[in-house]
Design a protein around this nucleic acid. Structure first.
Lengths: 145, 145
DNA sequence: TATTGTTATACTCTATAACTATA
DNA sequence: TATAGTTATAGAGTATAACAATA
């Protein structure tokens, strides 16, 4: 409890709630990651799509959408944009399915994005005292659906 | 590490990252809280505004916006909506400042919202093994700006 | 001149419904 | 008939710039 007790006496009544702190932490993190990825002219979601395709060459859009929780209606224009920028290719598998592949520039970009994310993750964790990190990461896994 | 190790071998390469898990947890939580508050026809942000005003009767809009990180340009239409629904009043303090107050129905609503949030927070924490809760909550405080 | 609040606008992310063409 | 992908649209949340009125 190192000097954070003042959260309990605040004009923000829900400040002590873990739900509120969780949202603040996530928003801060997403904003910072967004700034980093903006250097590649990518949104966070676009970056995750690139990394997923890099790990799952040839996968169908619906697998991508399912694993990353992106509705297909939102995936279509995003993939079109990435295809127009020559980072991915959509190859017909059969008449209605399409496999996703990275182009060479897409692979290069995904590699750089991955490096940035690894650095970011390391820095994020290092803000937390080492003695709390393990419990923090394990606790998080109980909160996702 | 109770049975979550499989996160490390996944087709989602960033699944082990705390940043990703943080976002998943926050999104899940916000969605669930949103469902609860929808029963009061309130968004999460509107609910936090009501609770802030309840705790800070007479406060200026700029204090509210500053503490809850809501840009004044976005606060104005939201407060107009809450005023139209008769939950708050805006009283002129001087020619350019306005104090925020809850109406009687607004007070009633804020009270019910608060009860719901307390219940929700309790249930949220209880998803996490008791031995991890303290470290989790403390760790979160290091991640907000 | 700086501050409080407003208006207008736009962009990201997400959500839903209707549609096509295929299996 | 169910599935993969598309199109159109709408809402919530957030961001910026220009503005009026006042301190």
């Amino acid at each position: 409890m190192a000097g954070k007790e003042n959260l309990l006496q605040t004009d923000v009544p829900f400040a002590p709630f873990s739900g509120y702190q969780l949202r603040l932490a996530s928003n801060t993190m997403m904003h910072e990651l967004g700034e980093i990825l903006r250097q590649h002219s990518l949104t966070v979601v676009e970056a995750t799509v690139l990394l997923f395709v890099a790990r799952n060459e040839g996968c169908l859009q619906r697998l991508l959408g399912g694993k990353l929780n992106i509705a297909s209606a939102n995936l279509t224009p995003m993939l079109s944009k990435l295809e127009k920028r020559q980072f991915i290719r959509r190859e017909p598998i059969d008449g209605r399915s399409k496999g996703l592949f990275l182009t060479e520039p897409g692979n290069e970009l995904a590699s750089n994005v991955w490096k940035d994310m690894v650095v970011f993750e390391k820095a994020l964790l290092e803000r937390i005292p080492a003695s709390l990190r393990g419990a923090f990461m394990e606790a998080l896994t109980y909160l996702s659906k």
